[in-house]
């Protein structure tokens, strides 16, 4: 029982990072209908900017966070301008946009690799160990040991998610985003500046991806130019599982994937955890092809 609760906590803190990362994928998809495979590179940049801010500029953590998020958001806007907008202008197939995002991802990762070499003379670096108090909170009665930072991450992640939900549903620019997601042409007719909405969406997606990357760096301390590759597939799975383009779906998907992975470890199948995740994904897709919280395809424009 004790282990089960402990594992539950593990799942929640991992799920928070996955969800935050998946949100960025989901937002871009809901608006453009395109997968932005460079989002994993943005995630990595979040961790990288955080590392630079803390390790090179000696900034405190609370200042490094917004820097990492802002930096990742700006690069994400750059992606829209360089890899997506020119293709949309040429009416290119969505699949071409997918490939251009791969090209952009390769570019970002390789440039970061060069910068890593310059600064650290290696392709990995560590955040300082004393960055966050690592003494775990011990709850003897339950036999639990919880890292405060992990709980903090869950809290911050949830706050960011609620803020996002508020923004999309209650604030004007969020309503414009939903209008553009529903139908670009109609939105343009209503006087919405569609390209500005695109930029704003990429910025938000980048900020969330950057936050996820920064969390990842803070919890695990190890940062390399390749950490994005580890979450790329997980993020994709999460949004498909939750329902493409659905914001609550991405959050649910992220927690579900983390929960499933950890559940497979608990039942003694750590070697099979990704197979378990994908089998469930497969079954869900067969029953509900639009994902758990997604709308059926016909209602989307």
């Amino acid at each position: 029982m004790d282990t089960l609760i402990q594992q539950g906590i593990n799942a929640i803190s991992l799920g928070a990072i996955y969800s935050l990362f998946a949100l960025g994928y989901a937002m871009v998809f809901s608006i453009l209908g395109v997968l932005n495979l460079a989002h994993s590179a943005i995630f990595m940049l979040g961790a990288f900017f955080g590392l630079i801010a803390i390790d090179q500029w000696s900034l405190p953590l609370w200042l490094a966070f917004p820097i990492a998020m802002l930096g990742a958001g700006l690069v994400s806007v750059g992606l829209e301008l360089v890899a997506f907008r020119p293709l949309r202008r040429r009416n290119a197939a969505r699949i071409s946009q997918l490939i251009s995002s791969i090209g952009a991802a390769i570019l970002i990762v390789n440039i970061t690799q060069l910068i890593f070499r310059q600064i650290y003379n290696s392709t990995e670096a560590y955040l300082p160990r004393d960055l966050i108090p690592s003494d775990p909170i011990v709850i003897e009665s339950l036999g639990l040991r919880v890292q405060p930072v992990r709980m903090l991450i869950v809290v911050i992640a949830l706050v960011l998610m609620v803020l996002l939900q508020y923004l999309v549903n209650r604030v004007r620019i969020g309503q414009h985003m939903r209008a553009v997601a529903f139908n670009q042409r109609i939105a343009a007719l209503f006087g919405i500046n569609v390209s500005r909405i695109f930029i704003f969406t990429f910025f938000l997606a980048g900020v969330l991806g950057g936050a996820a990357g920064m969390f990842y760096g803070v919890v695990f301390l190890n940062v390399t130019p390749f950490i994005g590759e580890d979450v790329a597939l997980i993020g994709l799975t999460a949004i498909v599982l939750g329902g493409m383009g659905s914001i609550p779906g991405a959050v649910l998907g992220g927690f579900l994937v983390a929960g499933l992975q950890i559940f497979s470890i608990v039942i003694g199948g750590s070697s099979f955890r990704n197979a378990v995740v994908f089998l469930l994904l497969f079954i869900i897709l067969l029953i509900r092809p639009q994902g758990l919280l997604g709308q059926p395809e016909s209602t989307r424009a």
């Binding site: 282990t3 402990q6 594992q7 593990n10 991992l14 190890n222 950490i227 003694g268 750590s270 990704n274």
Partner: peptide, 20 residues
């Protein structure tokens, strides 16, 4: 016995199972 994959960073689940 527990396994992990290259690039994994969270070993809490496996360790929790092992230490039990």
């Amino acid at each position: 016995e527990q396994t992990f994959a290259r690039g994994d960073v969270d070993f809490n689940p496996q360790l929790t199972a092992l230490l039990a």
